[in-house]
C-alpha cells in the first residue's frame, strides 16, 4: 500500500531548483531512508511531505504529493490537520522549555484534548512507545531541557507520537547523539514500524542498511535511484549510486 505518492514534483527556493521532477511512492508501515550528499535535497523532500516548506518564503512547489490519494497541497487541504497526521522529528532535539509532561501534552492539547486523566494516559503511552518512560516517569515535572541530548530526542519522538500521527518524518534524528543513544533510537524506530509509516533522512549508510526497507538516493535535487535497501547496497543500478555508497564521493 502506498501512503504517499509523489508525482512530477519540482521545488524551487526562489529561482533555485532544489528538487527536480521527483516521482516516488512511499509504502505504508515501512521505513524509507533518504540518502545522498549534503545539499542534495533530502531535508527539502522530507519537509515537503508535511508542508514545513510553507514556512520558507519564496518556496514554490509544482506537481502532486498525495497522502492516501489526497493532494496535500490542494487549496482546501488543512495544513494543521496534515501535520497532525504526518509528525516530524528534527535533527537537533528541540524540546520546549517546559516540563516533560507539558512537552508531550502540547500536541494533544493543541488538538483539543483537555481532560486531565486522558492527557495523563496519552503522556504515559507516548513516553512508553518512545522507550523513555522508565527513565523519566518520576520526573515528569522536570524541565525537558535538563535531561541528556539522547533523552531529549526521545522526548521529541514521544511528543510527535502523542498526536497519534500516521506517518513519522525524521531528519537525521541521531546525528547529534552518542552511539548508545543512537542504538536506542534505531531500535525504537524498528519497533515503531509496526504502527507507523516512517521516512528517515540519514547521512549514515550503515544506519540506512540497518533499519530501512527501502532507500532513495538523491543527488543535486534528482532522485537517482529508489529501490529495496538490500538492492541499493548490493546491486545498485546507477553508477552514481555505486560511487556514493562505496564512498567514492560525497
Amino acid at each position: 500500500m502506498n501512503k504517499f505518492v509523489i508525482k512530477n514534483m519540482n521545488l524551487y527556493y526562489d529561482d533555485f531548483h532544489a528538487l527536480k521532477n521527483i516521482n516516488m511512492n512511499i509504502h505504508e508501515k515501512k521505513i524509507t531512508a533518504l540518502i545522498g550528499p549534503s545539499g542534495c535535497g533530502k531535508s527539502t523532500l522530507l519537509k515537503s511531505l508535511n508542508r514545513m516548506n510553507d514556512l520558507v518564503e519564496k518556496c514554490t512547489i509544482k506537481g502532486d504529493i498525495l497522502l492516501d490519494s489526497e493532494d496535500i497541497y490542494a487549496e482546501n487541504s488543512d495544513v494543521n490537520l496534515l501535520r497532525k497526521r504526518v509528525g516530524m522529528v528534527f535533527q537537533k532535539p528541540n524540546p520546549f522549555p517546559m516540563s516533560i509532561y507539558d512537552n508531550i501534552a502540547y500536541g494533544p492539547r493543541t488538538h483539543g484534548v483537555k481532560n486531565k486523566s486522558k492527557l495523563d494516559e496519552i503522556v504515559e503511552k507516548s513516553l512508553k512507545s518512545a522507550a523513555i518512560w522508565d527513565e523519566v516517569k518520576n520526573d515528569l515535572k522536570k524541565n525537558a531541557l535538563r535531561i541528556s541530548g539522547g533523552q531529549q530526542q526521545r522526548i521529541c519522538i514521544a511528543r510527535a507520537l502523542a498526536i497519534e500521527p500516521e506517518v513519522l518524518l525524521m531528519d537525521e534524528p541521531t546525528s547529534a547523539l552518542d552511539p548508545i543513544s543512537t542504538t536506542k533510537i534505531e531500535e525504537l524506530i524498528q519497533e515503531l514500524k509496526k504502527d507507523y509509516t516512517i521516512v528517515i533522512v540519514t547521512h549514515n549508510m550503515q544506519q540506512a542498511t540497518r533499519i530501512s526497507d527501502k532507500t532513495a538516493f538523491l543527488l543535486n535535487g534528482e532522485l537517482i535511484e529508489y529501490d529495496k535497501t538490500v538492492n541499493i547496497f548490493s546491486v545498485p543500478k546507477d553508477k552514481r549510486t555505486e560511487d556514493y555508497i562505496t564512498g567514492r564521493f560525497g
Binding site: N50, K84, G87, K92, Y106, C156
Partner: peptide, 27 residues
C-alpha cells in the same frame, strides 16, 4: 527565540497564534 521551537510547534499542527502565545511569548 530559537526557530527550532517555532518549527516544533508548527510541526505538531499548532497554528500561528497558539505558537506565539504558548511557545514564543513565555520565552
Amino acid at each position: 527565540v530559537d526557530d527550532s521551537l517555532r518549527e516544533a510547534s508548527f510541526g505538531l499542527g499548532a497554528g500561528k497564534l497558539r505558537t506565539i502565545f504558548k511557545i514564543v511569548l513565555p520565552v
